[in-house]
Amino acid sequence: MNVTLIFVFSMICYVFAFIGFSANISLNRESLYMPSRSIAWAGVIAALIALAFRWYSAGHPPLSNMYESLVTLSTFIALAGLIFTRNQPLPMLEAGTCVGSVLMFGVASLFTSDVKPLIPALQSYWLHLHVSLAFIGEALFAIAFILSYLYCFRKIMTHTAEKSSFSDIFEKIACYLITIGMPLAFIAGMSLLASHLSQHPSYAQSWIVLVWGVIIPASVTTLILMLLVWMYRGAVHKGVEKWLPDEDGLDKLIYRAIALGYPLFTVGGLIFGMVWANKAWGRYWGWDPKETWALITFLVYSIYLHVRLARGWNGTWTACISIVGFLVTMFTLFGVNFLISGLHSYG
């Protein structure tokens, strides 16, 4: 069975689901919501089947290299999005998780998809526990990131008649920076990655795929979306009011996603990682770059949880910390592997 084809089918489902959710919001057709959700579910189920086949054929869980890790994380993000919204329809979030999954799969396709046997260091049941739990945590952080982005988007689309204080102005500036800066930062990050890959003979074709498959489509889509939002800002404002919870509601949802993801990431990514490192390398902590960046991720989300307890910090600033947290998570996943070498160089 061609597993890659199933993954491609799954991605096509996500693209159609995204179109469905977008039509649901922009055309104000509630009848489109459930079919879009069903298509997204079809994509997730197809991806899960493909992962199961890959696991069966390789004899180990699909978590042993960059391709497998990213495809698994892509599936987890889509699945987490659907489960998270089971009681509360949030088409904007669901559309976001579809985009996130497709982009993650796009980046995964840069890496070789060959099934290889496990190297000695990875032959441990801790691989299942450590990586899979950490990925579930990261998928929930991705949900929090999308919700935080939507929070900022809502903030700039909502006009208040009251006179703005300095703090409001700063918050608005931060929201603008995030709403416009995030897609640009993604494109810049991918361009850096392409430039880095172009210097490696083994990635000779990959960087071209990255440019034509990810960077150019993402740039064009971002530009078109920004133009459309600017041109139809009145309609978008109404859509936001209708399809997104209020700021307080979004803030609580962000907290919920992080409150669910933080313990899973901490136990899976840090504690199980420590136990495994102790078993494999004789020490539970060695300040390896991947370990250190996992700790940094933990610290950033710890700051989020503490800041949220402090009075007057809810809202924009906590959303900003959630966004920084996810960027750190992504750097831990990609940046450390490409820019900083260490013991985790295999994945």
């Binding site: 700051i303 503490h306 900083i340």
Partner: peptide, 20 residues
């Protein structure tokens, strides 16, 4: 609580520097 947040923040920055 603010002191704790500042200390975690400094620890985060120092950890980042340690990897760079």
């Amino acid at each position: 609580l603010k002191s704790a947040i500042i200390l975690i923040g400094i620890l985060t920055v120092l950890s980042v520097l340690g990897t760079l």
